[in-house]
Design a protein around this nucleic acid. Structure first.
Lengths: 278, 278
DNA sequence: AAAGCAATATTGTCTGACAATAGACGTAAA
DNA sequence: TTTACGTCTATTGTCAGACAATATTGCTTT
């Protein structure tokens, strides 16, 4: 029953109220509050905000503030504007601001105390492996550096994860991996192919049998998002990449950890070249 | 100015209100609300809640609910009690409940929609590498399994991270590493030693030059917390471990990636033995 | 039987109030 | 002059109550 919608703060829903961000309207008269029903004050009342799932006010606010922090607008240690100030700046209620701030606190970007305010936590505390933080982080510096960092990380994780998968995969997990691999080959569009590619690598992480590896999937997703622009359209390259994926699939299927690890290393080296050559 | 207190939801502050958790008091009369000042209703009003930093109501609530979810009380897909219900169960305001839920949403343990309610997200979405989630996760299954998983993860991460550190460390980073190593040797108590040990490994992660490795420090901290009970009191073992740490320090200092990697592998193998032998 | 429509339950948002906290500052004492 | 203490005050924490938006559920109508 719970629908499987995309996760929240992904920041692309174009938060409605951000349009009038700096539009400080100090003299907004209080809404009458007596008029119970009938007599709609005709517009003015933020007509149709919050349509898309990920764009409730607090969510959008969290995105905006989170992005600013990660981007470096408020360096670690900085004391942020207080809740009343945010509330005024964005013309939203204090509750919405508080909920947004609580979300950022949950990601360790912020902490707060009465009388002090909220301050930006030192960068080491940031939960960089969080989906949203990662997304914000990915936008701020130039793509190159970010992509290189993620790619380096993949070199550390994926070969070992794949070796474990070759040892411990269940049949169901193998089926997922194989299917994703097949769908990569049959994909009609580049986007479709990339999606199957992502599924392939995530399935391997899940099959590794180590719960802690699974959350690292966000890194792979992020990498593929940013790699998309670099992806080749050349048929030769595509076929080569497909062969490499099939080699990985095969070695996991035949339960050969070492061979699987090497196959992944080859694939990553190939990806490195794609990045470098651009 | 921002004090460097421990991070929030660490769940050891023994949240005050949890005492009367199941104490459903349906007929609580509304507080008079007219009596402005003077005439304190004498006790009853949750006398001294929220003393310790990490124990505000919403924070404690998030801990309690988060723990329940991770523990498996509400399996993925389950629709949770609604906000009003939580509010009643714990006798706290709906705002507090909402803020707690927003924190859990930020960690991808929950998601919600109007009219539906809040449901537990599939486990793959959980941000297991989050400090709090990890802490909750660590309590639920038996220590053994958790410890083994974390330790396996360390085998994947730390050798490579250390090799990178040997290549890219700055002098400041080296100083941190060396100091932690020294303090390990000079530590007077086991606890003191463990703390220095943790600092040593975290400093290496930071020195690796890959931002994404830093957040994995929570795993190491968690591992050491749980490893503490297993730690040996034998002098021989301690001295052996110290030698291994010094070998790592030396190889990073001399910028020998391969030797550093091997030194870490040895140390981890030693730790494996400690775990296994218990 | 199918399609549209209304009732309903739940989260989302706003408002306004008061409590608790801890820094800043001034005042008094040593 | 310096130190210690108490007061002032700005900020988050908590509460209460109201209304809006939304999508499921079940009913009604064709």
């Amino acid at each position: 029953m719970p629908p499987n919608g995309r996760t929240a703060l992904d920041s692309f829903p174009k938060p409605a109220f951000l349009e009038f961000m700096r539009d400080a309207r100090p003299n907004k008269e209080k809404s009458p509050k007596k008029a119970v029903a009938a007599e709609r004050p005709a517009g003015v009342r933020r007509p149709d905000a919050a349509r898309i799932p990920g764009s409730s006010v607090h969510t959008s606010l969290a995105s905006e503030i989170g992005l600013r922090i990660v981007r470096g607008d408020y360096p670690p240690g900085t004391i942020l504007p207080n809740e009343a100030k945010w509330s005024e700046t964005f013309s939203v209620s204090r509750s919405a601001v508080r909920e947004a701030i609580k979300m950022l606190m949950a990601k360790s970007l912020l902490a707060s105390r009465p009388k002090i305010g909220s301050w930006v936590e030192p960068k080491e505390r940031w939960n960089l492996l969080d989906r949203d933080v990662l997304a914000w982080y990915a936008t701020s510096p130039d793509r190159e550096v970010f992509l290189r960092t993620v790619q380096e990380f993949r070199h550390i994780i994926e070969p070992e994860a794949t070796a474990f998968a070759a040892m411990r995969r269940t049949d169901e997990q193998m089926a997922e991996i194989s299917q994703a691999c097949r769908e990569m080959g049959e994909a009609k569009s580049l986007q479709e192919r990339t999606r199957a590619d992502t599924r392939f690598h995530l399935a391997i992480l899940r099959a590794s049998g180590n719960d802690l590896l699974v959350p690292l999937g966000v890194l792979i997703e992020s990498a593929f998002d940013h790699l998309f622009a670099y992806t080749t359209r050349e048929l030769d390259d595509l076929q080569l990449a497909q062969k490499m994926h099939e080699a990985i699939e095969k070695n996991i299927r035949l339960q050969r950890p070492d061979a699987a690890r090497n196959a992944v290393r080859k694939l990553l080296a190939n990806t490195d070249n794609v990045i470098r050559s651009r």
